[in-house]
């Protein structure tokens, strides 16, 4: 390989890494809502199969549901953004008595990991007051993103 080709290789690898990093950064904390039709089906038929309606109960998450919303955070121990996200969500839950937050270790909750096809940590499932999963986020999530998700996924009915 000629010296010029080696320099070109370095430039290409760095360009690729930059593109990857930009994609990764844009994805972090972005809220993806569950399709409204799916949610409507879940509400219309309470006896609907639990796995298709994606409803979580207190026993699934070892915690009580918030009356408006619950952030179910799935974390791993080798994960710094998990700690930061934990602090953000815990603060939001502490300020509002209708929102709760639970942080679960993926290693001990593989059932949830498989059921919701969780690929990275942290992943946050947003549940409404009934425990239905209304959307999710993954990666480092800041306060603004979490509050926007709350308003989009669990609007307060006036």
């Amino acid at each position: 390989m000629s010296p010029l080709a080696r320099v070109a290789l370095v430039v290409v690898v760095l360009g690729l890494a930059t593109a990857l990093g930009a994609l990764w950064r844009a994805r972090n904390g972005r809220f993806s809502p569950v399709a409204p039709a799916v949610l409507a089906a879940a509400g219309a038929d309470p006896a609907h199969d639990e796995t298709t309606t994606a409803r979580l109960t207190t026993s699934d998450i070892d915690a009580a549901l918030g009356s408006r919303a619950t952030f179910v955070q799935l974390s791993s121990e080798v994960c710094t953004p998990c700690r930061r996200t934990h602090a953000v969500l815990a603060a939001i839950a502490a300020e509002r008595n209708d929102v709760s937050h639970v942080d679960l270790d993926v290693a001990t909750h593989l059932d949830l990991v498989r059921r919701f096809d969780v690929m990275r940590t942290p992943t946050i499932l947003l549940l409404d007051g009934r425990g239905a999963v209304v959307g999710r986020m993954s990666g480092a999530t800041d306060r603004r993103q979490a509050l926007d998700a709350l308003d989009a996924g669990c609007p307060v009915i006036a």
Binding site: A64, H86, A87, A90, A93, N97, S100
Partner: peptide, 27 residues
Amino acid sequence: SPAAESPVRTGSAAGSPPAARAGSSAV
């Protein structure tokens, strides 16, 4: 670490701000 080793409940359900801060204090 509370965030990883065991489930930590925060917010109104547990109603415990100290638990809410446990994650960051571990860090």
